[in-house]
Design a protein around this nucleic acid. Sequence first.
DNA 1: CCTACGGGGCTTACACCGTAGGCTGTGGGG
DNA 2: CCCCACAGCCTACGGTGTAAGCCCCGTAGG
Lengths: 209, 209
Amino acid sequence: MDVPARPPLSRDRIVEAAMEMADAGGVPMVSMRKLGAALGVEAMSLYNHVKNKDELLDAMLDAALREVVLPDTTLVWDEQLAALAQEFRLAGRRHPGVLPLFGTRAIRSLEGFAPLERSFVILRQAGLAPDDALDAFMMLASFVLGYVTSENGGLREVAEGRSIDFSTIDFVAHPFLIEMGEAFVRHDGDREFQFGLDVLIDGIRQRLT
Amino acid sequence: MDVPARPPLSRDRIVEAAMEMADAGGVPMVSMRKLGAALGVEAMSLYNHVKNKDELLDAMLDAALREVVLPDTTLVWDEQLAALAQEFRLAGRRHPGVLPLFGTRAIRSLEGFAPLERSFVILRQAGLAPDDALDAFMMLASFVLGYVTSENGGLREVAEGRSIDFSTIDFVAHPFLIEMGEAFVRHDGDREFQFGLDVLIDGIRQRLT
DNA sequence: CCTACGGGGCTTACACCGTAGGCTGTGGGG
DNA sequence: CCCCACAGCCTACGGTGTAAGCCCCGTAGG
């Protein structure tokens, strides 16, 4: 007898649905009309909970960042950093459609900023001076962001043959391309990511003296 | 007396104008109608040179990559890598609006792929086995892409105060945030980028034995 | 010189987008 | 009990990508 049991609209439900749409078909698949439809509501009703689409996109980035689970503070600093990086990568893989927003949108909430803040804190407590900690932070964050971006973006297109058509390449003029392609087929992302992480963290450790 | 001297439309002219628009106002500012207007032409005329907007976006990414000047092959391998990374960063800074396309679009032409191919070649010729070269390549490429993305994206927003409002933060609960912010103000991107590069290349060198 | 053709531009039209503005029903506080 | 704030809805406007068709003009063949 009651209403058709449609759960009440809420900002969180909207953001969640938007992330789902983005992950399924990329950011361009997210439209206020489709989003409303997915929630059983008219597009304009969303505006009771979200100022506009830009704010919604920011909220999606924030929500993805809030999913990054922060490492146990009892671990040694290098283990903490590695764990945090791994968790970031997991969150990025869970939300391939949200990840590109990093390139264009800003982190708006303190909770979203928490993983970045935490990285800095770990480095400071490991003994680095503020400026050195920032250097190390930027290095780590750049690598992690870049790796996950490659993985979900261009690299996947290469792997799935949606990029260059390898069959048309003149391998005499490009003797290493075929080798590179073969290595790509063999490569193990988990191991590769860990390798990069090791190099970076070793580099930081050496600067600790 | 002649025609108003409108140079003939061409794919290259279209792509160039599109990159200019993207760099000025971000990818969303690029619309076929505005692009046509900028070239003194109707939107639909563009379709004589470009299959659709998706292809145009791919072409923009490709064009930006083709701007990366490849290093002098007579240099030592580590100098070549550093030079290539620096040139990539320069191209990325020249085209802040095109850079986010890395996250969503694929490299379509062999010329666009050239900087990546070259990195791999340098690593191979430095003595790394194919799989190790790919590891090192992914590490370097991820760092460079991530760094330039941060620089032009979220980081700039932070620096320009468009991100979190620092004045509302509880610095007792977040004792390191203020320090991090101060370090951000001081930081020198060129030095910071070079620092990351050094750590990565050192790491590669150590694996050369 | 005439004619035929083809390519590159223009126009029209359609479905979809974000969102301003205003309407309506409903549930909770005075 | 009243009212009013809020969360939905509807309508409408200007902008978007692009399919389809038209038209003009530059060139090639006779």
